[in-house]
Amino acid sequence: MSCTIIVGGFFGDEGKGKIVAHIAHQDHPTVISRGGVGPNAGHTVLVGKKEYGVRMVPSGFVYPKADLCIGPGVLVDPRVFLREVAEVEVSGRIFIDGRCGVIEEEHIARDKGSEHLAKTIGSTGSGCGPANSDRVLRVARQAKDLPELAPYIIDVAEKVNQAIDNGEPVLLEGTQGFGISLYYGTYPFVTSKDTSASQIAADNGVGPTKIDDVIVVFKAFPTRVGEGPFSTEMSLDKSHALGIQEFGTVTHRERRIGTWDGKMARYSAMINGCTQVAITGIDRVDPTCFGATSYDQLSQTAKDFIRQVEVDVGQPVTIISTGPELSQIIDLRKKR
Rank of each mutant, 00 (worst) to 15 (best):
Q142L: 05
L146Y: 13
D145I: 02
S126W: 00
C128R: 00
M56P: 02
R83F: 12
S114F: 08
Y52D: 11
L82I: 13
K50I: 15
V76D: 06
G129P: 08
F95T: 04
G113M: 08
L68S: 05
V139Y: 00
Y63A: 08
H43M: 03
K50S: 14
T44V: 15
I94H: 12
L137N: 11
E115R: 14
T124Q: 01
R79C: 03
L149I: 06
E115W: 12
G101I: 10
A109V: 02
T120Y: 05
A66N: 01
I108D: 03
R83S: 15
Q142F: 05
G122V: 10
I121M: 04
D134S: 14
L82Q: 09
V90R: 01
C128Y: 06
I70M: 09
S59M: 02
G129S: 14
E148I: 07
G129R: 04
Y63M: 09
V102K: 00
S114N: 10
H107T: 11
F61D: 10
R99N: 15
E148Y: 07
R55A: 15
V47H: 12
K49T: 13
R93H: 07
V76Y: 11
V74F: 06
A66C: 00
A109M: 09
T124P: 01
A41S: 12
K112W: 08
P151S: 07
P72L: 04
G92W: 12
P64A: 12
V47R: 06
F81Q: 09
E87A: 06
M56K: 03
I108L: 06
E104H: 11
Y63T: 11
A131N: 01
V136E: 10
M56F: 09
G122F: 12
V57I: 11
E105M: 12
E84N: 01
K65G: 01
G92T: 08
C100W: 00
G122A: 10
H43G: 00
T44I: 14
E89A: 13
R55T: 10
A66S: 02
I94M: 14
G122N: 11
G42P: 03
G71R: 01
P78G: 04
V62L: 04
E104M: 14
P64G: 12
R141K: 15
V76W: 10
R99S: 15
Q142A: 11
F61E: 07
A143T: 03
P130W: 06
G42A: 05
G42S: 02
N132Y: 13
K50V: 15
P130Q: 02
E115P: 04
A143C: 12
I70Y: 11
R110F: 08
R110L: 06
V139C: 08
P64V: 07
P58Y: 07
